[in-house]
């Protein structure tokens, strides 16, 4: 199977596993969990793909993660039912998932 495709899938799964617990801490429940899932499907593969295509430079990764945080925060604020402080939740979720990714 294509190595890049595998990388995208593994990265997305890892992101979901690490971000759901953080989202829980921000009162995400019910339909909010589906929102967390869809928002990460929206941002994670695109971020990982662009990062890979451009050589996985840390500086660019920071920019891409920043854009993902803004996009996810926007969606959390606009569409979540129980979650508060969408941008802060997005920031913490992405910080933890990025950190775990680096460790692995």
């Amino acid at each position: 199977m294509n190595e890049l495709f595998l990388k995208l899938v593994i990265s997305l799964l890892l992101t979901l596993v690490t971000e759901f617990p953080v989202a829980f801490l921000f009162q995400a429940k019910g339909k909010d969990l589906l929102l967390v899932f869809l928002v990460n499907i929206l941002t994670n593969p695109a971020v990982v793909l662009v990062s890979t295509l451009t050589g996985d430079r840390v500086s660019l990764q920071m920019i891409l993660e920043g854009m993902a945080i803004l996009a996810e925060g926007f969606y959390y604020n606009k569409y979540s039912t129980y979650m508060r402080k969408g941008f802060l939740c997005s920031f913490c979720c992405n910080l933890v998932s990025y950190g775990v990714g680096l460790l692995l």
Binding site: V22, L25, L88, C92, L95, V96, Y98, G99, V100, L102, L103
Partner: peptide, 16 residues
Amino acid sequence: LSLLIFFVAMFMIFPS
């Protein structure tokens, strides 16, 4: 809680 998450993430990022 937010602060805790922040520091935990920092400790994970810098050593790595």
